[in-house]
Design a protein around this nucleic acid. Structure first.
Lengths: 255, 255
DNA sequence: TTTTTTATATTGTAATGCGATATAACTTAT
DNA sequence: ATAAGTTATATCGCATTACAATATAAAAAA
């Protein structure tokens, strides 16, 4: 990955490897030197130097009992990313209107290969707190946004993504069979939107329509998420699919 | 800052210096090598190596015309930060209720010395898009959240913060005189909340109450923001101050 | 307490990141 | 169009920096 690449700065890669280890941290997002060493496989001295430097730079903070946590300084980069993204700029007012019109939770997700990341979120009711945060990632194969994006990609690319995905159930009802997932993606292609019933969470119904960049590459999706206690699948789609599709089209920057 | 510190990894500092330069980027958040060199003062080869490495790691993405933009991968860290923060965990449902109860915009900000960062936000109506994003920073001296946090800090610490702040007006009505700012902070201490009228934005009235950690250090604030077309200062405070104070108290983790 | 584990400080050394330079690719001016 | 100028990418020898081993100190565990 980085061998015989004389421009590749290995120490930087190690630092980010260490930072990424905080995603695998169990309770409280706290890691000790020992934890970092175990999670990354880095040398103890490297862990020492990197954590020391990152604290000085403000990207790690020291917690109690010789632990480290991610620094709040990372919020800065997220802000700069979102603020300058043309897609986010266009999506922001559109999602706001969509949320007011539907009363349901609406999200904008960005496609990242085997995962999607939620970038903008308009929540309607109380939910598992972290499930509604910006930056949350979920597997593409199980999320409506992931499926609808894949429905606009070439078959071989899609199969490659599925093959590289860990097909771990996200809810008791998650479809994890390769062929069934591919069939769901085909269905999304026909409909122009993906529908996920209880794929991520029991009781949840989500519908998503894809967003495209100027080269007509699908880059993300608009989601509308409701509750099965309020809707049956048919009426949910009838009401919301046209809205999601039109919102996604407005956000898209197609040539 | 880093001299004769044998544990300090300079190349890492350079990489973050480069990443931080994207905050100063003008249009579109795009930077060329030349821009990075100018903004950071780093050697051209260093810029080349760092940008190259950051692209490989996914923390920079290549834009059109040899430009670079921040990678969406930074959203991951923000998610991990927010998800593991005890303050955020407690605040999330409380802010949701507060927003439903008031119908106004409510925010949770975190204190970062001369600035505050917005961490959680519940928007009510359309606003200047980026003003309502997570990660937005504003000067402590002009924000209600900053002022109310400072009202719980020792006088000399507050004066030091003000002295290190660039007292640049954020709206035509921003108070920028040292003594007036200190007076506003004193007033906040008496009231138990800070009130800012058109300090950041014309037509906006904001009220904030401080949040404390287990050591009784003020670490952030709950904001309620309304419009002067809907409220006069008195009734805004009468209705919202008790709500903000009680929300802040519930979020706090005082001993 | 003692023992063991984990964190921090120190140091000599080699590999890595450095910066100069060369080449290539793009812009701008003529 | 072509040339001149600018900016990006590739290459390379060298010094510095990051490295890993180790010593000391501080917490945990026994």
């Amino acid at each position: 990955m980085s061998d015989d690449d004389s421009l590749f700065v290995k120490s930087l890669a190690k630092a980010f490897q260490l930072l990424e280890a905080f995603e695998k941290s169990g309770d409280g997002g706290r890691l000790t030197h020992k934890d970092m060493k175990q999670l990354t496989g880095l040398d103890a001295s490297t862990v020492q130097r990197m954590s020391h430097t990152l604290v000085k730079l403000g990207y790690l903070e020291r917690g109690q009992n010789r632990t480290y946590v991610l620094g709040k300084k990372f919020l800065h980069f997220t802000f700069e990313y979102l603020r300058h993204s043309q897609t986010i700029q266009r999506a922001s007012p559109i999602l706001m209107d969509l949320q007011n019109e539907t009363g349901e939770r609406v999200d904008l997700s960005l496609f990242e290969d085997v995962e999607i990341v939620y970038a903008l979120r308009r929540q309607s009711k109380r939910e598992t707190f972290f499930a509604t945060l910006t930056g949350r990632r979920v597997p593409s194969f199980a999320a409506s946004g992931g499926r609808v994006v894949m429905s606009h990609l070439p078959r071989d690319v899609v199969e490659d993504i599925i093959d590289r995905s860990a097909l771990v159930p996200q809810s008791p009802k998650t479809v994890t069979s390769r062929t069934e997932i591919l069939a769901e993606i085909d269905r999304a292609r026909e409909l122009g939107y993906a529908l996920c019933i209880e794929q991520m969470l029991i009781g949840e119904i989500v519908l998503a329509s894809a967003i495209f960049d100027e080269r007509n590459t699908p880059i993300g999706a608009v989601h509308i998420a409701g509750s099965l206690s309020d809707w049956d699948a048919d009426s949910f789609c009838r009401k919301h699919a046209p809205l999601a599709i039109s919102a996604a089209r407005m956000i898209s920057n197609r040539s």
